[in-house]
Design a binder for these strands. Structure first.
Lengths: 237, 237
DNA sequence: TTCTATACATAACC
DNA sequence: GGTTATGTATAGAA
Protein backbone atom coordinates (compact mmCIF):
# COMPACT_ATOMS: atom_id res chain seq x y z
CA UNK A 1 0.00 0.00 0.00
CA UNK A 2 2.04 2.85 -1.16
CA UNK A 3 0.67 6.22 -0.46
CA UNK A 4 1.83 9.10 -2.44
CA UNK A 5 2.48 10.91 0.75
CA UNK A 6 4.53 9.62 3.55
CA UNK A 7 2.37 7.64 5.87
CA UNK A 8 2.50 9.96 8.78
CA UNK A 9 3.28 13.04 6.79
CA UNK A 10 0.58 13.23 4.26
CA UNK A 11 -0.48 16.64 5.26
CA UNK A 12 -2.60 18.03 2.56
CA UNK A 13 -1.42 21.24 1.13
CA UNK A 14 -4.91 22.57 0.78
CA UNK A 15 -8.32 21.54 1.86
CA UNK A 16 -9.38 21.31 -1.69
CA UNK A 17 -12.76 22.46 -2.71
CA UNK A 18 -15.03 22.54 0.24
CA UNK A 19 -18.71 22.18 0.07
CA UNK A 20 -20.31 25.47 0.73
CA UNK A 21 -23.67 26.53 1.84
CA UNK A 22 -25.94 27.80 -0.81
CA UNK A 23 -26.39 31.15 0.71
CA UNK A 24 -24.94 34.54 0.17
CA UNK A 25 -21.29 34.65 1.03
CA UNK A 26 -20.78 37.00 3.88
CA UNK A 27 -17.25 38.11 3.43
CA UNK A 28 -17.22 40.74 0.71
CA UNK A 29 -13.84 39.72 -0.39
CA UNK A 30 -14.52 36.06 -0.85
CA UNK A 31 -17.76 36.95 -2.42
CA UNK A 32 -15.99 38.95 -5.04
CA UNK A 33 -13.51 36.21 -5.67
CA UNK A 34 -16.22 33.67 -6.01
CA UNK A 35 -18.11 35.89 -8.33
CA UNK A 36 -15.16 36.33 -10.61
CA UNK A 37 -14.29 32.70 -10.77
CA UNK A 38 -17.80 31.56 -11.27
CA UNK A 39 -18.59 34.13 -13.82
CA UNK A 40 -15.66 32.92 -15.80
CA UNK A 41 -16.89 29.40 -15.39
CA UNK A 42 -20.37 30.33 -16.44
CA UNK A 43 -19.18 31.98 -19.59
CA UNK A 44 -16.98 29.08 -20.38
CA UNK A 45 -19.87 26.71 -20.02
CA UNK A 46 -21.96 28.87 -22.22
CA UNK A 47 -19.26 28.95 -24.82
CA UNK A 48 -19.06 25.20 -24.79
CA UNK A 49 -22.75 24.80 -25.24
CA UNK A 50 -22.60 27.08 -28.21
CA UNK A 51 -19.82 25.18 -29.82
CA UNK A 52 -21.08 21.76 -28.95
CA UNK A 53 -24.68 22.21 -29.86
CA UNK A 54 -24.82 25.20 -32.09
CA UNK A 55 -27.03 26.99 -29.63
CA UNK A 56 -27.05 30.72 -29.32
CA UNK A 57 -26.60 32.33 -25.99
CA UNK A 58 -26.68 35.76 -24.51
CA UNK A 59 -25.82 36.37 -20.90
CA UNK A 60 -25.77 39.53 -18.95
CA UNK A 61 -24.37 39.54 -15.48
CA UNK A 62 -24.41 42.33 -13.04
CA UNK A 63 -21.94 41.80 -10.27
CA UNK A 64 -22.73 42.68 -6.72
CA UNK A 65 -20.32 45.51 -7.17
CA UNK A 66 -22.20 46.92 -10.05
CA UNK A 67 -20.14 45.97 -13.02
CA UNK A 68 -21.90 44.48 -15.92
CA UNK A 69 -20.49 41.63 -17.89
CA UNK A 70 -21.91 39.95 -20.88
CA UNK A 71 -21.44 36.95 -23.02
CA UNK A 72 -22.87 36.43 -26.41
CA UNK A 73 -22.78 34.03 -29.17
CA UNK A 74 -22.92 34.45 -31.91
CA UNK A 75 -21.32 37.77 -31.95
CA UNK A 76 -23.73 40.40 -32.87
CA UNK A 77 -23.13 42.51 -35.86
CA UNK A 78 -25.39 45.11 -34.50
CA UNK A 79 -24.28 45.87 -31.05
CA UNK A 80 -25.89 49.01 -29.96
CA UNK A 81 -25.11 51.02 -27.03
CA UNK A 82 -26.50 54.39 -26.95
CA UNK A 83 -25.45 54.98 -23.44
CA UNK A 84 -21.98 54.22 -24.26
CA UNK A 85 -22.12 56.56 -27.12
CA UNK A 86 -23.88 59.43 -25.66
CA UNK A 87 -25.94 58.85 -22.69
CA UNK A 88 -23.92 58.81 -19.59
CA UNK A 89 -26.40 61.04 -18.01
CA UNK A 90 -28.89 58.34 -17.84
CA UNK A 91 -26.62 55.97 -16.19
CA UNK A 92 -25.81 58.44 -13.54
CA UNK A 93 -29.32 59.39 -12.94
CA UNK A 94 -30.36 55.88 -12.59
CA UNK A 95 -27.62 55.05 -10.25
CA UNK A 96 -28.67 57.72 -7.92
CA UNK A 97 -31.92 56.02 -7.65
CA UNK A 98 -30.32 53.07 -6.14
CA UNK A 99 -30.11 53.23 -2.45
CA UNK A 100 -27.81 50.39 -2.06
CA UNK A 101 -25.43 50.29 0.74
CA UNK A 102 -22.23 48.48 0.98
CA UNK A 103 -20.09 48.19 -2.00
CA UNK A 104 -22.35 50.24 -4.01
CA UNK A 105 -20.45 53.26 -4.77
CA UNK A 106 -17.77 51.27 -6.09
CA UNK A 107 -19.30 51.51 -9.33
CA UNK A 108 -18.95 54.88 -10.32
CA UNK A 109 -18.88 56.71 -13.41
CA UNK A 110 -21.10 55.44 -15.94
CA UNK A 111 -18.74 55.44 -18.66
CA UNK A 112 -15.46 54.68 -19.99
CA UNK A 113 -15.17 51.64 -21.85
CA UNK A 114 -12.23 49.57 -21.59
CA UNK A 115 -10.68 46.50 -22.68
CA UNK A 116 -12.13 43.43 -23.78
CA UNK A 117 -12.51 40.44 -21.70
CA UNK A 118 -9.65 38.33 -22.68
CA UNK A 119 -11.64 35.26 -22.39
CA UNK A 120 -13.28 36.31 -25.49
CA UNK A 121 -10.11 36.09 -27.36
CA UNK A 122 -9.35 32.68 -26.08
CA UNK A 123 -12.69 31.22 -26.70
CA UNK A 124 -13.10 33.05 -29.85
CA UNK A 125 -10.09 31.33 -31.16
CA UNK A 126 -11.36 28.01 -30.04
CA UNK A 127 -14.58 28.62 -31.75
CA UNK A 128 -13.13 29.94 -34.88
CA UNK A 129 -12.73 26.53 -36.31
CA UNK A 130 -16.37 25.94 -35.85
CA UNK A 131 -17.42 29.24 -37.20
CA UNK A 132 -17.79 28.22 -40.76
CA UNK A 133 -21.16 26.94 -39.91
CA UNK A 134 -24.22 28.92 -39.59
CA UNK A 135 -25.03 31.55 -42.07
CA UNK A 136 -26.97 34.64 -41.82
CA UNK A 137 -30.61 34.73 -41.45
CA UNK A 138 -32.31 32.86 -44.18
CA UNK A 139 -34.67 35.54 -45.13
CA UNK A 140 -37.97 33.91 -45.35
CA UNK A 141 -40.59 35.42 -47.47
CA UNK A 142 -39.61 38.07 -49.82
CA UNK A 143 -42.07 40.73 -49.06
CA UNK A 144 -39.59 42.81 -47.29
CA UNK A 145 -36.51 42.07 -49.19
CA UNK A 146 -36.50 44.70 -51.80
CA UNK A 147 -37.48 48.01 -50.34
CA UNK A 148 -34.62 48.56 -48.01
CA UNK A 149 -31.80 48.76 -50.43
CA UNK A 150 -33.45 51.39 -52.47
CA UNK A 151 -34.14 53.82 -49.72
CA UNK A 152 -32.18 56.70 -48.43
CA UNK A 153 -31.82 57.47 -44.82
CA UNK A 154 -34.96 59.50 -44.56
CA UNK A 155 -36.97 56.86 -46.20
CA UNK A 156 -35.52 54.22 -44.04
CA UNK A 157 -36.38 56.20 -41.04
CA UNK A 158 -39.91 56.62 -42.13
CA UNK A 159 -40.03 52.99 -42.94
CA UNK A 160 -38.81 52.15 -39.54
CA UNK A 161 -41.55 54.18 -38.02
CA UNK A 162 -44.07 52.25 -39.99
CA UNK A 163 -42.56 49.07 -38.82
CA UNK A 164 -42.83 50.25 -35.29
CA UNK A 165 -46.47 50.91 -35.73
CA UNK A 166 -47.04 47.66 -37.39
CA UNK A 167 -45.25 45.89 -34.66
CA UNK A 168 -47.40 47.55 -32.15
CA UNK A 169 -50.45 46.46 -33.96
CA UNK A 170 -49.23 42.95 -34.12
CA UNK A 171 -48.61 42.90 -30.44
CA UNK A 172 -51.89 44.48 -29.69
CA UNK A 173 -53.67 42.00 -31.79
CA UNK A 174 -51.88 39.10 -30.26
CA UNK A 175 -52.88 40.45 -26.96
CA UNK A 176 -56.47 40.63 -27.93
CA UNK A 177 -56.46 37.08 -29.03
CA UNK A 178 -54.93 36.06 -25.83
CA UNK A 179 -57.55 37.73 -23.83
CA UNK A 180 -60.12 35.88 -25.76
CA UNK A 181 -58.58 32.50 -25.59
CA UNK A 182 -57.22 32.79 -22.20
CA UNK A 183 -57.12 29.31 -20.97
CA UNK A 184 -57.09 30.20 -17.40
CA UNK A 185 -54.27 27.93 -16.69
CA UNK A 186 -51.67 29.73 -14.86
CA UNK A 187 -48.63 30.22 -16.64
CA UNK A 188 -46.25 31.52 -14.28
CA UNK A 189 -46.46 28.73 -11.90
CA UNK A 190 -44.44 25.76 -11.26
CA UNK A 191 -41.32 25.89 -9.50
CA UNK A 192 -38.32 25.17 -11.35
CA UNK A 193 -35.88 25.81 -8.71
CA UNK A 194 -35.82 28.67 -6.50
CA UNK A 195 -39.42 29.17 -6.50
CA UNK A 196 -39.77 30.47 -9.85
CA UNK A 197 -41.45 29.26 -12.73
CA UNK A 198 -40.46 26.26 -14.53
CA UNK A 199 -42.06 26.34 -17.82
CA UNK A 200 -42.14 29.93 -18.39
CA UNK A 201 -42.29 30.04 -22.02
CA UNK A 202 -40.85 32.69 -24.11
CA UNK A 203 -42.31 32.81 -27.51
CA UNK A 204 -39.98 33.29 -30.40
CA UNK A 205 -40.97 36.79 -30.96
CA UNK A 206 -41.57 37.99 -27.53
CA UNK A 207 -40.13 40.86 -25.76
CA UNK A 208 -39.61 41.19 -22.14
CA UNK A 209 -38.26 44.03 -20.23
CA UNK A 210 -36.62 44.33 -16.93
CA UNK A 211 -34.70 46.81 -15.05
CA UNK A 212 -31.38 45.58 -14.11
CA UNK A 213 -29.99 46.84 -10.99
CA UNK A 214 -26.86 45.45 -9.76
CA UNK A 215 -26.10 45.82 -6.20
CA UNK A 216 -25.48 49.34 -7.02
CA UNK A 217 -26.16 50.03 -10.56
CA UNK A 218 -29.37 49.88 -12.25
CA UNK A 219 -28.84 48.78 -15.70
CA UNK A 220 -30.77 48.22 -18.73
CA UNK A 221 -29.92 46.00 -21.54
CA UNK A 222 -31.53 45.04 -24.63
CA UNK A 223 -30.40 41.71 -25.75
CA UNK A 224 -31.91 41.04 -29.03
CA UNK A 225 -30.17 39.29 -31.73
CA UNK A 226 -27.36 37.12 -32.39
CA UNK A 227 -25.22 36.68 -35.29
CA UNK A 228 -21.92 35.07 -35.28
CA UNK A 229 -19.08 34.18 -33.10
CA UNK A 230 -18.47 34.17 -29.45
CA UNK A 231 -18.12 37.28 -27.57
CA UNK A 232 -17.34 38.36 -24.12
CA UNK A 233 -17.91 41.78 -22.90
CA UNK A 234 -17.15 43.53 -19.75
CA UNK A 235 -18.28 46.83 -18.63
CA UNK A 236 -16.06 49.38 -17.19
CA UNK A 237 -16.43 49.98 -13.60
CA UNK B 1 -11.31 -7.49 1.00
CA UNK B 2 -14.70 -7.58 -0.44
CA UNK B 3 -15.14 -5.73 -3.65
CA UNK B 4 -18.50 -4.64 -4.66
CA UNK B 5 -17.90 -6.31 -7.94
CA UNK B 6 -16.62 -9.77 -8.34
CA UNK B 7 -12.88 -9.79 -8.70
CA UNK B 8 -12.76 -10.73 -12.30
CA UNK B 9 -16.12 -9.28 -12.99
CA UNK B 10 -15.75 -5.71 -12.07
CA UNK B 11 -16.80 -4.53 -15.39
CA UNK B 12 -17.64 -0.92 -15.15
CA UNK B 13 -21.24 -0.24 -15.64
CA UNK B 14 -20.62 2.90 -17.57
CA UNK B 15 -17.69 4.61 -19.06
CA UNK B 16 -18.31 7.60 -16.95
CA UNK B 17 -17.93 11.03 -18.39
CA UNK B 18 -15.72 10.90 -21.39
CA UNK B 19 -13.66 13.72 -22.63
CA UNK B 20 -15.16 15.14 -25.72
CA UNK B 21 -13.87 17.24 -28.49
CA UNK B 22 -14.84 20.84 -28.42
CA UNK B 23 -16.57 20.81 -31.68
CA UNK B 24 -20.12 20.59 -32.78
CA UNK B 25 -21.67 17.29 -31.95
CA UNK B 26 -22.57 15.57 -35.14
CA UNK B 27 -25.33 13.28 -34.07
CA UNK B 28 -28.48 15.35 -33.79
CA UNK B 29 -29.78 13.22 -31.05
CA UNK B 30 -26.79 13.42 -28.77
CA UNK B 31 -26.54 17.05 -29.58
CA UNK B 32 -30.01 17.58 -28.31
CA UNK B 33 -29.36 15.57 -25.19
CA UNK B 34 -26.21 17.47 -24.51
CA UNK B 35 -27.97 20.72 -25.06
CA UNK B 36 -30.66 19.89 -22.58
CA UNK B 37 -28.33 18.68 -19.92
CA UNK B 38 -25.95 21.53 -20.29
CA UNK B 39 -28.60 24.15 -20.44
CA UNK B 40 -29.88 22.86 -17.17
CA UNK B 41 -26.40 22.94 -15.79
CA UNK B 42 -25.82 26.44 -17.03
CA UNK B 43 -28.94 27.73 -15.41
CA UNK B 44 -28.10 25.99 -12.23
CA UNK B 45 -24.71 27.58 -12.18
CA UNK B 46 -26.22 30.93 -12.84
CA UNK B 47 -28.63 30.44 -10.00
CA UNK B 48 -25.81 29.61 -7.67
CA UNK B 49 -23.88 32.66 -8.59
CA UNK B 50 -26.91 34.73 -7.89
CA UNK B 51 -27.43 33.24 -4.50
CA UNK B 52 -23.82 33.13 -3.47
CA UNK B 53 -22.77 36.53 -4.63
CA UNK B 54 -25.93 38.49 -5.00
CA UNK B 55 -25.22 39.01 -8.66
CA UNK B 56 -27.97 39.48 -11.15
CA UNK B 57 -28.10 37.40 -14.24
CA UNK B 58 -30.14 37.17 -17.37
CA UNK B 59 -29.60 34.43 -19.89
CA UNK B 60 -31.30 33.78 -23.15
CA UNK B 61 -30.60 30.59 -24.97
CA UNK B 62 -31.74 29.64 -28.39
CA UNK B 63 -31.43 25.95 -28.96
CA UNK B 64 -30.31 24.60 -32.26
CA UNK B 65 -33.85 23.49 -32.69
CA UNK B 66 -35.22 26.94 -32.33
CA UNK B 67 -36.64 26.94 -28.88
CA UNK B 68 -35.82 29.80 -26.68
CA UNK B 69 -35.07 29.41 -23.02
CA UNK B 70 -34.28 32.03 -20.53
CA UNK B 71 -33.04 32.43 -17.05
CA UNK B 72 -33.30 35.46 -14.92
CA UNK B 73 -32.54 36.59 -11.51
CA UNK B 74 -33.85 38.37 -9.80
CA UNK B 75 -37.20 37.63 -11.06
CA UNK B 76 -38.62 40.74 -12.34
CA UNK B 77 -41.77 41.92 -10.88
CA UNK B 78 -41.24 44.85 -12.97
CA UNK B 79 -41.14 43.09 -16.18
CA UNK B 80 -42.07 45.72 -18.56
CA UNK B 81 -42.79 45.51 -22.07
CA UNK B 82 -43.23 48.85 -23.47
CA UNK B 83 -44.14 47.37 -26.72
CA UNK B 84 -47.04 45.57 -25.36
CA UNK B 85 -48.05 48.58 -23.46
CA UNK B 86 -48.41 50.93 -26.25
CA UNK B 87 -45.41 52.85 -25.45
CA UNK B 88 -44.15 52.99 -28.87
CA UNK B 89 -41.79 55.81 -28.45
CA UNK B 90 -40.02 54.54 -25.50
CA UNK B 91 -39.84 51.11 -26.83
CA UNK B 92 -38.40 52.32 -30.00
CA UNK B 93 -35.96 54.44 -28.27
CA UNK B 94 -34.70 51.71 -26.17
CA UNK B 95 -34.56 49.15 -28.78
CA UNK B 96 -32.41 51.40 -30.87
CA UNK B 97 -34.78 52.56 -33.42
CA UNK B 98 -35.33 55.72 -31.72
CA UNK B 99 -34.85 58.78 -33.79
CA UNK B 100 -32.91 60.60 -31.26
CA UNK B 101 -30.77 60.43 -28.35
CA UNK B 102 -32.55 63.12 -26.58
CA UNK B 103 -35.58 61.31 -25.51
CA UNK B 104 -33.54 58.45 -24.55
CA UNK B 105 -32.22 59.67 -21.34
CA UNK B 106 -35.47 59.20 -19.89
CA UNK B 107 -35.20 55.65 -20.49
CA UNK B 108 -35.97 54.95 -16.96
CA UNK B 109 -39.40 53.63 -16.82
CA UNK B 110 -41.47 56.62 -17.31
CA UNK B 111 -44.18 54.25 -17.19
CA UNK B 112 -44.44 51.99 -14.35
CA UNK B 113 -44.30 48.50 -14.94
CA UNK B 114 -47.32 46.50 -14.90
CA UNK B 115 -48.34 43.05 -15.08
CA UNK B 116 -46.68 42.62 -18.28
CA UNK B 117 -44.99 39.58 -17.11
CA UNK B 118 -48.14 37.75 -16.63
CA UNK B 119 -49.35 39.07 -19.80
CA UNK B 120 -46.39 37.88 -21.56
CA UNK B 121 -46.53 34.59 -19.93
CA UNK B 122 -50.04 34.12 -20.99
CA UNK B 123 -49.25 34.87 -24.48
CA UNK B 124 -46.64 32.24 -24.43
CA UNK B 125 -48.95 29.91 -22.76
CA UNK B 126 -51.51 30.23 -25.40
CA UNK B 127 -48.99 29.76 -28.02
CA UNK B 128 -47.76 26.64 -26.51
CA UNK B 129 -51.20 25.31 -26.07
CA UNK B 130 -51.83 25.65 -29.67
CA UNK B 131 -48.49 24.37 -30.55
CA UNK B 132 -49.32 24.24 -34.12
CA UNK B 133 -45.99 25.62 -34.78
CA UNK B 134 -45.38 28.67 -36.66
CA UNK B 135 -46.18 29.13 -40.22
CA UNK B 136 -44.58 31.08 -42.87
CA UNK B 137 -44.95 34.71 -42.91
CA UNK B 138 -48.43 35.30 -44.12
CA UNK B 139 -47.98 38.84 -45.14
CA UNK B 140 -47.88 39.64 -48.75
CA UNK B 141 -48.39 42.68 -50.88
CA UNK B 142 -50.44 44.92 -48.75
CA UNK B 143 -48.21 44.20 -45.85
CA UNK B 144 -48.88 47.34 -44.08
CA UNK B 145 -52.59 47.33 -44.39
CA UNK B 146 -54.28 44.88 -42.22
CA UNK B 147 -52.93 41.43 -42.29
CA UNK B 148 -52.81 41.52 -38.59
CA UNK B 149 -56.45 41.04 -37.90
CA UNK B 150 -56.58 37.88 -39.84
CA UNK B 151 -53.83 36.12 -38.03
CA UNK B 152 -53.88 33.86 -35.10
CA UNK B 153 -51.39 34.09 -32.34
CA UNK B 154 -48.81 31.97 -34.01
CA UNK B 155 -49.02 33.83 -37.18
CA UNK B 156 -48.67 37.03 -35.32
CA UNK B 157 -45.59 35.75 -33.72
CA UNK B 158 -44.06 34.70 -36.94
CA UNK B 159 -44.98 38.01 -38.33
CA UNK B 160 -43.35 39.75 -35.46
CA UNK B 161 -40.22 37.81 -36.10
CA UNK B 162 -40.22 38.94 -39.63
CA UNK B 163 -40.67 42.47 -38.56
CA UNK B 164 -37.72 42.12 -36.33
CA UNK B 165 -35.67 40.96 -39.18
CA UNK B 166 -36.82 43.68 -41.37
CA UNK B 167 -36.07 46.19 -38.77
CA UNK B 168 -32.60 44.90 -38.50
CA UNK B 169 -32.22 45.12 -42.14
CA UNK B 170 -33.42 48.65 -42.16
CA UNK B 171 -31.06 49.59 -39.42
CA UNK B 172 -28.20 47.90 -41.09
CA UNK B 173 -28.90 49.60 -44.31
CA UNK B 174 -29.27 52.93 -42.66
CA UNK B 175 -26.00 52.40 -41.00
CA UNK B 176 -24.34 51.62 -44.23
CA UNK B 177 -25.62 54.77 -45.73
CA UNK B 178 -24.46 56.73 -42.82
CA UNK B 179 -21.06 55.30 -43.01
CA UNK B 180 -20.91 56.56 -46.48
CA UNK B 181 -22.15 60.02 -45.88
CA UNK B 182 -21.44 60.48 -42.33
CA UNK B 183 -22.85 63.87 -42.45
CA UNK B 184 -24.80 64.90 -39.49
CA UNK B 185 -28.02 63.22 -40.24
CA UNK B 186 -28.30 61.08 -37.30
CA UNK B 187 -30.53 58.32 -37.97
CA UNK B 188 -30.82 56.43 -34.87
CA UNK B 189 -28.29 56.73 -32.33
CA UNK B 190 -25.32 56.91 -34.54
CA UNK B 191 -23.26 54.12 -35.76
CA UNK B 192 -23.37 52.22 -32.65
CA UNK B 193 -24.47 49.13 -34.34
CA UNK B 194 -21.36 48.15 -36.01
CA UNK B 195 -19.00 50.96 -36.11
CA UNK B 196 -18.64 52.07 -32.63
CA UNK B 197 -18.07 50.19 -29.62
CA UNK B 198 -15.62 47.94 -31.24
CA UNK B 199 -14.75 46.30 -28.07
CA UNK B 200 -18.26 45.35 -27.48
CA UNK B 201 -18.15 46.52 -24.02
CA UNK B 202 -21.34 46.89 -22.26
CA UNK B 203 -21.33 49.64 -19.76
CA UNK B 204 -23.51 49.52 -16.73
CA UNK B 205 -26.35 51.16 -18.41
CA UNK B 206 -26.01 50.02 -21.91
CA UNK B 207 -28.11 48.45 -24.48
CA UNK B 208 -27.01 45.95 -26.97
CA UNK B 209 -28.85 44.43 -29.78
CA UNK B 210 -28.67 41.15 -31.50
CA UNK B 211 -30.67 39.11 -33.79
CA UNK B 212 -31.61 35.87 -32.36
CA UNK B 213 -32.11 33.21 -34.78
CA UNK B 214 -32.88 29.84 -33.77
CA UNK B 215 -32.11 27.19 -36.20
CA UNK B 216 -34.69 28.67 -38.39
CA UNK B 217 -36.49 31.29 -36.54
CA UNK B 218 -35.36 34.79 -36.24
CA UNK B 219 -36.27 36.06 -32.90
CA UNK B 220 -35.93 39.10 -30.88
CA UNK B 221 -35.80 39.45 -27.21
CA UNK B 222 -35.44 42.27 -24.95
CA UNK B 223 -33.90 41.29 -21.74
CA UNK B 224 -33.71 44.21 -19.56
CA UNK B 225 -34.34 44.13 -16.01
CA UNK B 226 -34.06 42.19 -13.01
CA UNK B 227 -35.77 42.36 -9.83
CA UNK B 228 -36.24 39.55 -7.54
CA UNK B 229 -36.03 35.91 -7.44
CA UNK B 230 -34.85 33.38 -9.85
CA UNK B 231 -36.70 32.44 -12.87
CA UNK B 232 -36.45 29.91 -15.55
CA UNK B 233 -38.23 30.16 -18.77
CA UNK B 234 -38.66 28.03 -21.76
CA UNK B 235 -40.16 28.72 -25.07
CA UNK B 236 -42.49 26.53 -26.84
CA UNK B 237 -41.30 25.11 -30.03
C1' DT C 1 -35.40 10.01 -17.59
C1' DT C 2 -31.64 7.57 -14.31
C1' DC C 3 -27.16 5.65 -13.29
C1' DT C 4 -21.87 5.65 -12.91
C1' DA C 5 -17.28 6.80 -13.75
C1' DT C 6 -14.89 10.56 -15.01
C1' DA C 7 -13.89 15.15 -16.56
C1' DC C 8 -14.20 19.45 -14.96
C1' DA C 9 -15.01 23.45 -11.76
C1' DT C 10 -13.69 25.60 -7.88
C1' DA C 11 -12.94 26.68 -2.31
C1' DA C 12 -9.22 27.39 0.30
C1' DC C 13 -4.53 28.68 0.20
C1' DC C 14 -0.52 30.86 -2.04
C1' DG D 1 -3.32 34.91 -10.86
C1' DG D 2 -1.53 29.77 -9.63
C1' DT D 3 -1.99 25.17 -6.93
C1' DT D 4 -4.36 21.26 -4.91
C1' DA D 5 -7.95 18.47 -3.16
C1' DT D 6 -12.52 17.85 -3.50
C1' DG D 7 -17.29 18.99 -4.94
C1' DT D 8 -20.01 18.84 -9.22
C1' DA D 9 -21.40 18.39 -13.89
C1' DT D 10 -22.08 15.29 -17.32
C1' DA D 11 -20.87 11.53 -21.43
C1' DG D 12 -22.32 7.27 -22.32
C1' DA D 13 -25.42 3.75 -21.62
C1' DA D 14 -29.75 1.86 -20.09
Amino acid sequence: MVMSNGAGNNKKRTKGQQKIEKKKIEDPNSRQVTFSKRRTGLFKKAAEICVLTGAQIAIVVSSPGGRVYAFRHPKTDVLIDRYLNNDNKVATAISNTEPETETTKNNQPPLPINEFNQHYVELSRAVEAEKKRRETIPASSGWYDEPVNGMNVEELQAYLCSLGELKNRVLTRADELMMINKSGAFFNSNTYEMGLNKNNIIPPASISTNTAISGSIPCRFLVLPFSDDLEFCRSSS
